Amino acid sequence: MKKLLFAIALLGLVSAAKAQTPSCCHKDAVTEFADLANSSDFRNQHANPLPYKYEGAEGENVSFPAPDGKEVHGFLFKAKTPSDKYLFVFQEWWGLNDYIKKESEKLYNDLGGKVNVLALDMYDGKIATNREDASKLMQAAPRERLQAIMEGALQYAGKSAKIATIGWCFGGGLSLQSGLINGKQNIGDVMYYGMPEKDIERLKTLNAPVLGLFASKDKGINPEVVKTFKENMQAAGKKLTVYSFDAEHGFANPSNPIYDSKATTEAYGYAIAFLRKQFGMK
C-alpha cells in the first residue's frame, strides 16, 4: 500500500513539473496560426513565390544539437569580430528559402556586421514553392519540434548571449515565441504580421519590448487580432509598439505579387531602428 501511495505521489510530481515547463505548444498561437491555412481567403493571400537564387558569399550553413536529440540547421552570418549579440531570423511559411537568406544578409549588413544573424530552419530542410505545400508543411510541423529548435538555438548562442528575434508570417509568431523561450537573454522581438500570444500569464514573462508590424487588409491577423494583442500586452504590463499598414498580408515579401515597396521600406525602417536600439547601437 505504501509503495502504491508513493507511486501515485511521484506521478503527481512529474505531472506538476511538466505543467511548469515553458512551452510554445499549448493551443496556442502557433497552432492557431497553422489553423489559418484551412481558410481559402488566407491561403489565397499567399501567391506562389517568384523564383530567386541567393548568391551571397558571407553566410554559411550551420548545424547544432537540439534538446530532442536531433540536429538543428540554420544559415549564419557571423559577426566580423567576436560578439555575444544574436539576431534569430524566422522564416515565412515557405521555409528557409533563398529570400530569407537574402533578408538575413540585409539585416546583417544594416547592423554593421556586429551581430550574429542566424536564420533558423524550422522545417528541417523542407521548402515549399507553392501555397498548397506551404500550408501542409506549416500544419504538419510538430509543435514540440519547433520548440526544440528554438531551445537549441538558445543553447547554441550561449548563456551570455543577448538575443533579439524577427520573423514574418508564420515566423512572426515564432519570433515572439522564441522571445518567450529566451527568457532574460531576450532583448527584443519584431513580428511581421504573425499570430500574437494570447496567454497574458505567458506574456508577463517577456523580458523585452515587442515591435509589431501588421497589415490592415490581413484576413488572418486582422485588426481585431491586433487590438486584442495590444490589450493583452497592456494587461501583462509589457511594452508593445504597433504600426499598421494599408496593405495585405505578406506585403514585405518581394516574391509576392502584392509586395508593397512603400510599406516595406517604412516597416523595415522601424524594424532596423528598433533592433539597433535594443543592441545598444547608435
Rank of each mutant, 00 (worst) to 15 (best):
N222M: 03
F75E: 11
G113T: 00
N130C: 01
L137C: 08
G112F: 11
A140C: 07
S83G: 01
Q139M: 12
K162R: 15
G69S: 06
K102T: 13
W94T: 10
T205V: 02
V89A: 04
I149S: 02
G179D: 04
L11M: 12
G237I: 07
K85I: 04
F88Y: 11
F251Q: 04
G152W: 06
A119W: 03
A34Q: 15
R145V: 13
S135P: 05
W93H: 10
V30C: 02
K277N: 13
V242D: 11
N109W: 07
K102L: 14
H46Y: 13
D246S: 13
F88L: 15
S160W: 00
K239M: 11
S63A: 12
N256H: 13
I149M: 02
L137S: 09
E105R: 10
V190I: 14
V72A: 12
G179M: 01
S255M: 08
E92P: 02
Y259M: 05
G220H: 12
Y99L: 12
K102I: 08
P196D: 00
F88R: 02
A271F: 08
Y243S: 11
Y243G: 07
A66L: 08
D98P: 09
S135Q: 06
A57P: 02
S39Q: 13
H46C: 10
L4V: 14
Q91E: 12
M150W: 00
G112A: 06
F33V: 05
D41Y: 08
A128D: 06
C169R: 04
K184M: 02
D246Q: 10
L36R: 14
S15L: 14
W168T: 10
K85P: 03
D110A: 05
G112S: 13
D124F: 10
E105I: 10
N207G: 13
L180N: 03
L4I: 15
K238I: 00
K184G: 03
I166N: 01
K277C: 01
D189Y: 01
I100S: 05
K198N: 15
A236C: 06
F170Q: 11
F245A: 09
R43T: 13
G173P: 03
N186C: 00
A252H: 09
D189G: 05
K106G: 07
Q234I: 04
E103F: 15
F33Y: 15
E231K: 15
V62L: 04
L211W: 00
L275T: 03
K217R: 12
I258K: 14
H26L: 11
Q185S: 00
K85N: 15
Y243L: 14
N48W: 03
F170K: 06
G237W: 08
P142F: 13
N61L: 14
Q147T: 09
